[in-house]
Amino acid sequence: MSTSNEYYIPHKATWPVLGTSGLLMMLAGFANYLNGSSGGAAWMGLGLTVVIIMMAGWFTLQATESESGMYSAQVGISYRMGMMWFIFSEIIFFAVFFGALWYTRNLSVPWLGGEGAKAATKELLWPTFEAVWPTNGPGKVGGDFEPMGTWGLPFLNTLILLTSGVACTWAHHGLLSKNREQLIKGLMATVGLGLLFVCFQAIEYHEAYTDMGLTLGSGIYGSTFFMLTGFHGFHVCVGAIILSVVLFRSWKGHFKPENHFAFEAAAWYWHFVDVVWLGLFVFVYVI
């Protein structure tokens, strides 16, 4: 009765509810933690564990179903669209923070310095403030700091991420040409470079906090710098985890040249993280 172009519809789903309750626990725990209630952190940990179990379980289920050939090409298209639009929503999320950077840098900070129609703002409220970027604002919030340099670690990190993007594509070629060794090596390089990136970023943050006086609390420069690079770093970690799962599956012999959605999704995600970094490098570090 089933034909290969039949659309596969699962009939029960237990992972979503489990995952949702995990998320709920995690966030309620986090909120309690922020409010300083005891026990918040424990709930957070518990919730996170549930979420991780859900992910592992759900992805395993998808992988087995996929490998047993239950997904028609049409199902594959749904997954691809899903991933594409998910990445789109992530891009928008980053765009908000880029937007905040643009707005504060080009509008609110100059206004505080008396530009445009806001001469009175400087005159009456912040007479000593000079609008130059980077800044921690007229209140010198967070105290003196040194802005992050560009051509040291950040530039090195740019090269690292770009290389990892190339490695990822190289792995894809391996997959397409049925060269499993190239696939695995490529993925290993991608993940390795990703982790290296994260390490360097950790070093950079450490320096900022200990030597340069630059923290999340360093006014608007610190806020935009750490929120943008921080969220990006978080996405690198997530991408690296996804790629590791793909690596594991490649090693187990999963994926075919004509059917490897999980690989594609991971690769798209990785390239997205790459491109965001390029934006960051230009707008946060260079300009």
Binding site: S108, L112, G137, G139, L216
Partner: peptide
Amino acid sequence: TSFFDAAGG
């Protein structure tokens, strides 16, 4: 952070 606080820019 100081996104919405003038004192921090």
